[in-house]
Computed example of a mutant assay.
Amino acid sequence: MSATPAGLLPVAEAQARLLALATPLPIEHVDLLAAQGRFLAKPVTALRDQPWTDLSAMDGYAIRHADLPGPWRLAGESRAGGASPSTLLRSGEAMRIFTGAPLPDGADAVLVQEEALAADDHIRLNGEGPGYPGRNVRARATDFAIGSPLLDAGSLVGPAHIALVAMAGHATLPVRRRPRVALIGTGDELVAIGGALRPGQIPASNGIMLAAMLAQAGAEVVDMGLFPDDLDSLTAAFRAAAEADIIVSTGGASVGDHDLVAPAILKAGGTLDFWRIAMRPGKPLMAGRLGDALMLGLPGNPVSAFVGATLFLLPLVRRFSGAESPLPHWSSLTTSVPLPEGGLRAEYLRATVKDGVVAQVAGRDSAALLPLAHSNALVERPIDAAAALPGEQVRAILF
């Protein structure tokens, strides 16, 4: 196997170094709906029993199982939403009960109404009846009990989790403050979205793409605007963005005469931790610090910026947000198309996955957005990997 080219940092090492620079942000308590899509800062336990008492799972009659096959004398009624009946159910008695209603003391089963004949104040069996004690009963605390662990710290909160903690008695959840991310676009050729274009100019698509990715990841985005290839202007932009948790620039990250991100960061008083990654696309990615903010410099080509954001920016946001596992989730998929052998850099191919199978792989042009927009995965080709034949397994990040 070939070594990583001199001066290039392996992707995994660069990710580890970047995440080591960040610590989770302070904790805040938010209402349940505001916690959607965020990561728990502390474990959550139940504040109540669920069910709160033994409840009927069916409409019918609460009985003592030992009294089968009956008959029974009707001794009252229990409805959902009411307190537990105050009377003790005695041998030979049945109580009319509805789904979700509390069982009276003494009852241990529910005879469903389809298997009962009611006449006057007496109930007779008209079927097999409940087969065992506890039949058609939701026993107290069988879902969870007071103090039961519900969710771990670092869990991503979704709708089902919100329902769970609401039922468990919580009105708020502890989460990390949303990371503030400042976006800086660089390049003389860039024009704001919707602006008139002169020859040689292009719309600034990277900023809006990254803003969408960051919003989906739960970050607060501050668009600092577009800046020309001018050292003083770019230095001022970085200084103005230093109050953010993360500063992200696009473009100007390579080593050409007009690639000024690294000099501007240093002139603004920042430091660089690493620069240039053994990956394709996205080799000129850089990371550093400016004051309390972490800085991530992404390449200007749109696909390179997307791949860099997927592998580095979004994990950094998740790390600040308190995620238990901030790195992207890799899926093992079968490829139905041949894939190229790996080179000196890890390569991330735009791909279309259907029914868990890699069905199509796009070309390698890092400026081509149409194939990216029609892809739903990045397929990895590791350094020096042999060409993959149809039917073989590959690793992919699904969007």
Rank of each mutant, 00 (worst) to 15 (best):
D49C: 11
T53A: 12
L33E: 14
V44Y: 05
K42A: 09
R38P: 07
W52R: 14
W52Y: 13
Q36F: 14
Q50Y: 07
T45Q: 12
E28I: 11
A80E: 12
D59E: 09
A57R: 12
S56Q: 00
A35F: 08
I63V: 15
A57N: 07
L40M: 11
T45Y: 09
A34H: 14
A46Q: 06
A35S: 08
A34Y: 03
G37N: 10
W52F: 13
H29V: 03
D31K: 14
E77P: 13
K42Q: 15
W72V: 07
L32T: 14
L55Q: 08
G76K: 02
A35R: 08
G60R: 01
I63C: 03
D54L: 02
L47H: 12
L74T: 03
P71N: 10
R79K: 15
L68R: 00
T53Q: 13
T53Y: 12
G37H: 12
A75T: 04
G60K: 04
R64P: 06
P43E: 12
A75R: 02
T45P: 11
S78P: 10
G37V: 11
H65A: 10
A57Q: 12
L74S: 03
S78V: 05
E77H: 15
P69L: 07
W52M: 04
D54P: 05
S78L: 00
L74D: 03
H65V: 06
P43Q: 09
A75F: 02
Y61S: 01
R73E: 05
A80H: 02
S56Y: 02
E77L: 14
A62T: 05
E28D: 03
L33Q: 15
L47W: 06
Q36D: 09
Y61P: 00
V44G: 04
H29Y: 00
W52N: 01
R73Y: 02
K42D: 08
V44A: 01
G37D: 11
H29P: 02
G76H: 01
A35I: 10
A80N: 11
P71A: 08
W72F: 04
T53W: 14
G37T: 07
R79M: 08
E77Y: 14
R64A: 04
R64N: 05
I63M: 04
T53V: 15
W52A: 06
A35Y: 05
P51K: 06
A57V: 04
S78M: 09
M58H: 15
P69V: 01
H29L: 03
V30M: 10
G37L: 05
T45D: 02
G76N: 05
P69R: 04
Y61F: 14
P71R: 09
A34C: 08
E28A: 07
P43C: 09
I63Y: 04
F39N: 05
L32Q: 12
A66P: 02
A35P: 05
A34Q: 10
Q36T: 14
Q50A: 01
L55I: 13
R79T: 08
G70N: 02
L68W: 04
D59P: 09
A34S: 11
W72I: 04
